[in-house]
């Protein structure tokens, strides 16, 4: 038996690691991966509550989130490649055109 609390705790820790990664890394690729990790933590919650309540809606929505994450990765990686073509870098600190 998996208790709901364990799932919530693991998903909370995964989400925290994702937030820390987005905040401290400079590489745009790693930041994208951390966003994916946060989406997966949310998915884990969806599935845990689906299992807890016995309804299948959570699993259906987790599938929708998975498709959305795929779309987001496609656009994000295209942005990274376009950025690399233009500025020759993927470090987010070097992208400071809007800095006053």
């Amino acid at each position: 038996m998996v208790s709901l609390n364990a799932v919530l705790l693991i998903s909370f820790l995964l989400f925290s690691i994702g937030i820390i990664g987005v905040l401290i890394r400079r590489n745009a690729l790693v930041i994208l991966m951390c966003v994916e990790l946060m989406l997966n933590a949310a998915n884990l919650n969806f599935i845990a509550f689906a299992r807890h309540s016995g309804s299948v809606s959570g699993q259906a929505f987790a599938l929708l989130v998975m498709g959305f994450a795929a779309a987001e990765v496609a656009v994000g990686l295209a942005l990274v490649v376009a950025l690399y073509r233009k500025r020759d870098t993927v470090q987010v600190d070097d992208i400071n055109l809007l800095k006053g």
């Binding site: 998996v2 799932v7 693991i10 998915n43 884990l44 599935i47 845990a48 689906a50 299992r51 699993q59 987790a62 599938l63 998975m66």
Partner: peptide, 10 residues
Amino acid sequence: CFLSLEAEFL
């Protein structure tokens, strides 16, 4: 984790 939460398809 998903598999152990009875979400085999996912």
